[in-house]
Every structure is written in structure tokens, then in C-alpha cells.
């Protein structure tokens, strides 16, 4: 029991990191981004490559990935998504899905289809607390995921650009009348979201063998987290990630491991149908 709770919380932190960017993008731009999983996978592959080439620890690669991810997200927003943002939702989904296909094919061309893993020397280091094992790697992943979430929250609440993003998400027309460059603000929002996704990719690379097509299952988890949290706010996303991690682990332990993934999506469906605004109500960044 204690082990399942520890696992659930630690993995939940990572799940939250998958979801946070998706939530931010939707909260600010109202775009449901299917390319989000690709940012995570790109981050994972870059972390694995840095590990292979220079022996660089994936945790140390996170700051680099934040920068790269920011550039990718900003570029994708300004070059592509901007063009269709005011169109119907099917247009933005089709576009981001297309971008995802291109990204996956690119990953395949650059990195090939072979499995890739990172095996850090401290992989078996851990602590025993109250009969539960806390692996150092998992603790590190959890800590970095939470730091990424809190950092994003700080940027949105305490910086000029954060204020701009929140203003734009609250009332785009009013922001434009005030002379705010909304395209730039949307680019910044998507950049921040993709930065966290890329950083989270390095964390994923520490626990999962990399394959070019892994983005879809990651994206599904991100969606489940965000639906549970309600689109557009950060603290609930963290809590939702942990709820899903716990659901998965406790279901695996008490119902059976064959039902653990199903449990995630049952929770997703239950919340989506009973509480369509998410467990935490409808609360956007601007409020």
C-alpha cells in the first residue's frame, strides 16, 4: 500500500509535467494541441543523444531543453498555429495533428527506429521509508517536474510577459486595443508550454525506452491529466497528475495490473461526463 502510494505520487509528478503545457496552451490560445506529445518525445531523444554523445546527465540537460523547447513552441505558434487560430477547432486539431506526424517522421529519420535508453549509474540507488522504496531517480524526476510546474506558475504570475499572456487569454480584443502584440504573447505561451514538455521529455527518457511513436500514449496521459484538472490552471494539474498516478498504482495493486491503464481512462471518462469543467472547476490563468 505505502509502496503504491509512493509510486503513484512520484509518477504522478511526471504525468503532471506532461499535462501542464497542454493546459497552458488551451487556457491561453483555446487550441487543443496534438503536437504536444511530440515536444516531449523530442526532449527525450535530445536528452538521450546528449547522454550518448557526452555522458551528460539527463537532469543537467533539462535547462538546455527548456531553451530548445521554448524556441520550438514559439516557432510552431508563430509560423503555423497563428494562421488558423481564429478558425474552427477542427482546423487547429488537424493542423497540430499534421505537425505531430511531421515531427514523428522527423524523429524517425534522425534517430531511427531502434530502442534507445539511458542507464544512469545511480539507477539502483534509493531509500527505504516506512516500508516503501523511494528510488533516487524517481525522486529526482518528481522534484524536477514540480520545479518546472512552479517555475511556470511564477513566470505567469510575477513577470511582465506572464501578465501579458494572462491579459491576452482574458480578452484578446481588449489586449489588442491596448497595443499588446497578441501574436507574440501567444508565441510566448506556446513557447513556455513546449519548454516544459521538452524538459519533461528528459525525465521520461530516464524511465522508458524511447521509440519514435511513443508520443501518442504520452499525449493521452497528458489529456487525461488536463481533463481531470480542468483546462487552464497549474496547481490542479499537479494534483490531477498525482491522482492519476495513484489511481493507476492502486488499481494495479488492488484490482489487478491488467486494469491499471483502464483505470486512468475510466477516471478520465467519469470526470469528463460528471464534472465537465474538471475536478477543480473552471479557473483560468487570468482569474
Amino acid at each position: 500500500m505505502s509502496q503504491a502510494i509512493v509510486n503513484g505520487i512520484l509518477t504522478g509528478g511526471l504525468y503532471a509535467a506532461f499535462g501542464i503545457g497542454l493546459s497552458l496552451i488551451y487556457g491561453v490560445t483555446r487550441v487543443i494541441s496534438a503536437v504536444h506529445g511530440a515536444f516531449i518525445v523530442i526532449g527525450a531523444y535530445l536528452a538521450q543523444s546528449a547522454w550518448m554523445a557526452f555522458g551528460l546527465d539527463p537532469f543537467l540537460m533539462v535547462p538546455v531543453l527548456l531553451v530548445i523547447g521554448f524556441g520550438l513552441g514559439y516557432g510552431v505558434q508563430r509560423l503555423f498555429i497563428d494562421k488558423v487560430m481564429r478558425r474552427r477547432v477542427v482546423m487547429t486539431i488537424t493542423l497540430t495533428f499534421g505537425l505531430d506526424l511531421i515531427a514523428v517522421t522527423g524523429i524517425l529519420l534522425v534517430f531511427g527506429a531502434d530502442l534507445r535508453t539511458i542507464s544512469v549509474p545511480y539507477a539502483s540507488v534509493g531509500f527505504d521509508v516506512l516500508g516503501a522504496r523511494i528510488p533516487l531517480v524517481r525522486l529526482g524526476i518528481f522534484a524536477v517536474a514540480v520545479i518546472l510546474a512552479l517555475g511556470l506558475e511564477l513566470i505567469l504570475r510575477r513577470t511582465q510577459i506572464g501578465t501579458t499572456i494572462r491579459a491576452v487569454s482574458q480578452n484578446r480584443t481588449a489586449a489588442e486595443l491596448l497595443g499588446i502584440d497578441t501574436g507574440h504573447a501567444f508565441g510566448m505561451a506556446h513557447g513556455l508550454a513546449a519548454a516544459v514538455a521538452c524538459g519533461a521529455g528528459a525525465l521520461l527518457a530516464l524511465i522508458q525506452p524511447l521509440q519514435p511513436f511513443m508520443g501518442l500514449s504520452v499525449l493521452l496521459i497528458a489529456f487525461a491529466v488536463v481533463v481531470l484538472a480542468g483546462f487552464g490552471s497549474i496547481a490542479p494539474v499537479l494534483i490531477s497528475g498525482m491522482i492519476l498516478g495513484l489511481t493507476e498504482n492502486l488499481a494495479g495493486l488492488y484490482i489487478g495490473t491488467e486494469y491499471q491503464r483502464l483505470a486512468i481512462f475510466v477516471a478520465y471518462l467519469a470526470v469528463a461526463s460528471i464534472l465537465p469543467a474538471g475536478l477543480f472547476g473552471r479557473r483560468f490563468y487570468a482569474h
Partner: peptide
């Protein structure tokens, strides 16, 4: 005697069992 979904990211509860 356990069955779990292929591609599971977290097999923690399986290992506990």
C-alpha cells in the same frame, strides 16, 4: 500470475505484487 498492458510506463504495482 499477472497480466499488464504492453507499453506501461509505471510497472511499480506489478513489482510490488
Amino acid at each position: 500470475d499477472e497480466i499488464y498492458p504492453p507499453g506501461t510506463i509505471d510497472v511499480g504495482s506489478l513489482i510490488t505484487r
